[in-house]
Each structure stands twice: as structure tokens, then as C-alpha cells.
Amino acid sequence: MTLSNQEPLLEVKNLKKYFPINSGFLRPKKQYLKAVDDISFQIRRGETFGLVGESGCGKSTTGRTILGLYRATGGQVIFDGKDIATVAEKEMKPYRKRIQMIFQDPYASLNGRMTVTDIIGEGILTHNIASGVEKQERIYNLLHQVGLKREHANRYPHEFSGGQRQRVGIARALAVEPDLVVCDEPISALDVSIQAQVVNMMQDLQKEMGLTYLFIAHDLSMVKYISDRIGVMYLGQMMEVTASNELYKNPLHPYTKALLSAIPIPDPDITRKNKRVILQGSVPSPIDPPEGCRFASRCPECKEMCRHKTPVLEEVAPDHFVACHVVQGKA
């Protein structure tokens, strides 16, 4: 499924996003929350790239920075050959059409005072794609594509269930015919039986419309299922990037190993025999994190070197990138 040697649609190079914490009486020095700290990866045309990690690891910030919802502190976001991280706000408009987003919470991301037609049609009007009857026809088509009916077009979000709202959110994102869709936890607010419906639909739409997905989630089983390649993030940095099957068959980074073994498998015979790598403690604060590997404080294989020097993401096997001194054989 993975198409290697293909030109990337999106290339993220050394991306940084720091949030300043306002200095005050008790905080004489200005501090920064380093949400995303120097990460690089590529997304190939037509693939699904999964981004996983625990809460606070910077995966959502990465998605939002790619969209230009946050201004990058440093680094490049090269979309289709052009660096959009430094582009002026005025020139951003055509890219906003080409990169769209699906949000996590289908209750908060739809305006309760707009009808479904208004919600989906807004982007179509803004980008001058269609108007009048043609626009309405487009909206009906989109509704059909996401499994809703024509008569839903005049309803308000509160009249729908969670799964249906997420369908409206997807229709809105697809209305402007994007190339890349950033999906930020699109299914985690939905019930188990509804998740599979939405995931299947997203896969069908990808095939039909030739979409590229950046799929952000914390549910590793679902990410593995939907993604071609996966990046594992921890505390603002990328720990491991490789093809999804490779990641599960042959995880190299100690954090990936721990993360994978922490997943409860819905099969009592397997899960009860499973030897867990239980990580001690919890994720440290991303405010001015110390030098060295971000994972050092919880890593079962931590060496002296890991505490001083930050490891760099390197290709240790074909198409398998890891940032770990131990795996790279340096420690």
C-alpha cells in the first residue's frame, strides 16, 4: 500500500511552535511552552499519515501549525513545493482551500445557528467555487457522499446525533475540494459502533477524491488500521516514523514499545498473558524542558548520554526513522 519514492505533498522541516508564558511578578524570566520542538516528516500524495502520542505531546499543535492556524516559531511547512509557514496572510487563501480540517468535537465545531446548507456552503462561497443552484446541487452531492439525505440540508446541528454531526463536519471540509485533510481526533468523541462507520466512510472518500490525510489520534489500534505510515510523538518531538505495519511488527524506540504494550487488546487470552512495559511516572512539563532526550526520565533503557544530548531522527532501516541514542548504537 505504501508508495515509496513518491514526491511528498507536504514536507515539514524542523518545525517549531513555542507558546510564550507571560512573565509576571513571580516569573521574572520569560518562559516558553515548547509544544512542538524541531520535528520533521513528510506526507506523500494519497497516503494517510498517522500522528500518535499522549495528551500534551504536540500532535494537535502540529496539525494546527500546518494549517496556518498558528504561526510557526521556526522551521518550514512545504506544501506542494511552497513554504507556507512564512507566506503572508494575504497569500494564504488558496492554501486554505487546499488544506482543510476535521475537528474532534462534533458538538463544538459546528455553529449552532447555521443550517447544514450554510455550514457546508460557506467555504464554497468564500472560495468562489459555485453559487446559487449550482452550490445547492453541490451541497446535496456532498451530503449524499457522507451518507446523509437531501432533507438534512435545512436542519440545524442540534437535530443530529454525534456521528451525523461528524459527517456534516467532514462534508464541510470536503466542500472546497482540498488536497490535504488534517483530521484531529475525528472519531474519539464517537461511540464504538459509530467509529467504524465514520472510518470506513473516510477511507471511501479518500479513494474517490484522491485525498491525503494527516490523521491525528491517541487510539493506536485505529491509527494502525487507517494509516499507511505513522509518526510517534512525545513531548514535542518525533520519536519514530515508519510504515504502519513495520511500526507494530518491529517497534524500535523504547517509547513506541511501551505505548504499544499499553494498549488493552480486546482478547482476554492474549491480553492477560501479555508482558507489559509499564512506564513509571507521567509526561513531564513541556515548559522549558531540559536538554537531552525528552523521554529520558521515563525510559527503561536510558543511558548517561541520553540526559545530555538530544537525539536526532535518523534512518536506521529503510524507511524507518528513529530518534534514540541506544537504537542508533551511539550510547
Binding site: M1, S161, G163, Q164, D191, V192, S193, I194, Q195, A196, Q197, V199, N200, Q203, L220, S221, M222, K224, Y225, I226, S244, N245, Y248, K249, L260, I263, I265, P266, D267, I270
Partner: peptide, 26 residues
């Protein structure tokens, strides 16, 4: 049975099998 089928199995290495969702809503 439907619940079992609608969650992806991480233990299966290939992703070829499509998820079988439960249609409709609660």
C-alpha cells in the same frame, strides 16, 4: 458480535480486512 467486528484488531498485521460497522444509531 457487531461490537467485536467494529474495533480494529491491533494483533492482525495486515490491514486488508475492512471494519464492519454497526449501521444506524442507538
Amino acid at each position: 458480535v457487531g461490537l467485536h467486528k467494529s474495533v480494529p484488531k491491533i494483533t492482525e498485521l495486515e490491514n486488508e480486512e475492512r471494519l464492519i460497522p454497526i449501521e444506524g444509531t442507538p
